[in-house]
Amino acid sequence: MLIIENLTKIYDNGFKALDRINLEIPDGQFVAIIGLSGSGKSTLLRCINRLIEPTEGRIIWNGVDITAASDDEVRQIRRHIGMIFQQFNLVKRSKVLTNVLSGRLGYTNSLYSFLNYFPKQDRQDALANLDRVGIRDQANKRASELSGGQQQRVGIARALMQEPELMLADEPVASLDPATSHSVMKYLELLNKEDGITVLCSLHFLSLARTYAHRVIALKGGILQFDGLPTEIDENRFKEIYGEEAIEVAIS
């Protein structure tokens, strides 16, 4: 259970990215976060694993107050929260396998990582996770040699190495073409269904949210605009979220 209470984030330049957000997300839910660019989607996701320090409010996950955790504790918590990114955030010059293994760093002693040593089990898991996202044969290529969709799957495999209970996905398909987008979303859906991982996924396209999400949260200017089922978003709601002039386009 992830509980967000009164979460506010004001950046140093005075920009209010999140304004008193209250949410309760039960385990195992697939939640899509929609909204315009700059509506606070990324900030919300990054506050959850403290990549961004919230200004006010609390985030309580499985009974632990993330916002009050010390640096060491934050690292312990982050180990169970996977994250994938719009730009994939892989080390392009490193091998795919190394990229995947680096998801295990939180569990590895610094001294051993210094020597580039990972336990045998981790190496096996890395290959298994690559297998799961269908690119085991690419393990020894450089990450930069892979296509966008494949790179995002490496990102998923890296997050899987953490054995996450919660997956944060920040616009995971925004840099991909429609066909690849669906394949990446399907992997997220699979993790949600098979492993029971809670997924929080920010999306640009409402159609994707309708297809994959149990629940849709809409942000507008840092304020929670909508929280409900995907089917509840009709044309009026859509215009509330995206503005009067917006027209819904679907991704097929």
Binding site: N49, L51, R75, Q76, I77, R78, R79, I81, G82, M83, F85, Q87, F88, N89, L90, V91, R93, S94, T98, S102, G103, R104, L105, G106, Y107, T108, S110, S113, F114, G155, R158, A159, M161, Q162, L168
Partner: peptide, 24 residues
């Protein structure tokens, strides 16, 4: 990007530098 990604996995400062900064 990779620094952010590795921080998010719970890696420490030194680990982030070795795996996300040094290869670059």
């Amino acid at each position: 990007g990779p620094i952010e990604a590795l921080k998010a996995t719970g890696a420490g400062h030194l680990q982030t530098i070795i795996y996300a900064v040094v290869p670059q």
